[in-house]
């Protein structure tokens, strides 16, 4: 039996009258890559925000390694070992590339500082393919490089669980392949990952398991092959290319 890293139980989020996430439950196991897919507006990003602490649950609970985290704030959750990237890339424009990466390892799950942090940042940046760009102004990085930097920042805290919110969106085919390889290599290192993604190739090649959301609720769960063959999933996706 594989250990459960994250367990979401009956998660519900309401914005006024709108139910963005409706009674959702799932588990993520150690060293697993789990995908959350679903049409636009189905509540995937909201679910990510609920796990990372950007939003508070209306009902239900989230626990990490068996301990409730759904009452904690984002900073405390990060300190427990959950790191994330954002759907719309958020780098820190006033900081250097290296500092952007160091930002992830100073206050959170790992608390490095000084020379050790700089050394680690160098390693991580070359890991995500940014070596040699430590001194480039962050604003002049290309889109893919900004995404890489954001990933480096998330990895910097050495998280138990990594949340990637459409990290592969907007990449060209070559970049996409690089991105997929990068995520796969993270998984081989033992990081557990939740992936929100529209790129179905990535879902097929990376995920062990997927849940499919529609209108805030879970409509299917299983291996990518299974859920993508599910008639109900096909129905909610009609008009979208899978």
């Amino acid at each position: 039996m594989v250990a459960t890293v994250l367990s979401v139980a009956n998660a519900t989020k309401r914005f006024g009258g709108l139910v963005a996430v409706n009674n959702l439950s799932f588990e993520v196991h150690q060293n697993e890559v789990m995908g959350i897919i679903g049409p636009n507006g189905s509540g995937k990003t909201t679910m990510m925000n609920l796990i990372s602490g950007a939003l508070r649950l209306s009902e239900g609970s989230v626990s990490l390694d068996g301990r409730f985290i759904s009452t904690l704030k984002a900073d405390q959750i990060n300190q427990r070992g959950i790191a994330r990237t954002f759907q719309l890339v958020r780098v820190l424009p006033g900081l250097s590339v290296a500092e952007n990466c160091i930002a992830g390892m100073v206050f959170g799950h790992r608390r490095l500082w000084g020379d050790q942090a700089r050394y680690e940042a160098g390693k991580l940046l070359s890991r995500v393919g940014l070596s040699g760009k430590e001194t480039v102004p962050v604003g002049s990085l290309t889109y893919i490089d900004q995404k890489r930097l954001e990933l480096a920042r998330a990895l910097a805290s050495s998280p138990k669980l990594l949340l990637l919110d459409e990290w592969l969106a907007g990449l060209n085919p070559t970049e996409l392949q690089e991105g997929i390889d990068l995520i796969r290599s993270l998984r081989e290192e033992g990081i557990t990952i939740i992936l929100v993604e529209h790129v179905m190739d990535a879902i097929r090649s990376l995920c062990d398991r997927c849940i499919v959301m529609a209108a805030g609720a879970k409509i299917a769960e299983g291996s990518p092959g299974e859920v993508l063959a599910d008639p109900e999933v096909v129905k909610v996706y009609i008009g979208e290319d899978i």
Partner: peptide, 14 residues
Amino acid sequence: GNDETVARHVGINT
């Protein structure tokens, strides 16, 4: 000062 949301998500008690 750069981005308070990011700050919270890297573990800073802003």
